[in-house]
């Protein structure tokens, strides 16, 4: 059986036609990637590495110029598939203020469903359900601009889950949030994934990537690493050379190891670090 998202030798360039001759910026240079249903994949890479461009290729905002992308067996290159694909794969962007269209929370969440022509009774049910899922049900009659960043971002996510997508792509959804907002959004993402929604999370926060099942690292438009988080973050020097970082606990163990302290190289969570240091010092 083929995988849910299937990307083969994908190439994509931005072409600025205003310039004479047109300026071509090559972004993706042959990406092949499979994502299975139910996976939680974090995508890392420095600014300009091609992460966001890749995400936009998955739900057909960008159409592949070479190679192919298909979602649940449907090619994004076929325009007839786009509506179906975008219902299967929802996207959440960085700035919550750019994604909210209505003046009342529940109307915003209903927006896509109304466009899809869903029956009003069903819309009511799905909106309530989606708002409960992200923990924003009691705010359903509030004005979105009065919410905090984390709350707005959760409303944006509710608008996507109301469509019942199989997969959600999130492009740095926590970049503009305070620590509490970040924690709220991550908790929501993890709960969705536990309920079977495939998650593709683009992030610059290593503490978030650690929570995924799988980490894909992009550099210069190509996939350079693709593995489970422990196997990725144990490569501290490789990541730093790619302009990335590791969680503080991984960095600490890395420094201590280089001083000859007996510690494993794949400590990536707070719990593991506490446990290992306790064994060492206790």
């Amino acid at each position: 059986m083929s995988s849910f998202i299937e990307i083969r030798d994908l190439e994509f360039s931005y072409i600025n036609e205003i310039e004479e001759p047109p300026v071509v910026t090559e972004v993706l240079k042959g990406v092949t990637l499979d994502i299975n249903k139910g996976e939680f994949v974090a995508v890392l890479g420095h600014n300009g590495s091609g992460k966001s461009t890749l995400a936009k290729c998955i739900n057909g905002i960008n159409i592949p110029q070479k190679g192919s992308v298909s979602v649940d067996g449907m090619s994004v290159a076929d325009e007839n598939n786009l509506l179906d694909i975008r219902q299967k794969v929802g996207m959440v962007f960085q700035n919550p203020d750019n994604q909210i269209v209505a003046t009342i929370v529940e109307e915003d969440v209903a927006f896509a469903l109304e466009n899809m022509g869903v029956d009003p009774k069903e819309i009511r049910r799905r909106v309530d359900e989606a708002l409960k899922t992200v923990g924003m049900y009691e705010y359903r009659l509030h004005a979105p601009h009065k919410l905090s960043g984390g709350q707005k971002q959760r409303v944006a996510i509710a608008g996507i889950i109301a469509m019942r997508p199989d997969c959600i792509l999130l492009d740095e959804p926590t970049a503009m949030l305070d620590p509490k907002g970040r924690a709220e959004v991550m908790k929501t993402i993890k709960e969705l994934n536990e309920n079977g929604v495939t998650i593709v999370l683009i992030t610059h926060y290593m503490e978030e990537a650690v929570q995924a099942d799988r980490v894909v690292v992009i550099d210069g438009g190509e996939i350079v690493l693709d593995n489970e988080p422990k196997k990725i973050f144990s490569q501290v020097n490789t990541l730093k050379n790619l302009g990335l970082d590791v969680p503080q606990v991984t960095e600490l163990c890395h420094i201590l190891r280089s001083e000859g302290v007996d510690l494993p190289d794949d400590v990536i969570t707070e719990e593991e670090c506490v446990e290992k240091l306790y064994e060492l010092l206790g």
Partner: peptide, 10 residues
């Protein structure tokens, strides 16, 4: 440093 990658932040 918001929105920058780890190296840019640093």
């Amino acid at each position: 440093a918001s929105g920058l990658d780890p190296k840019g932040r640093e």
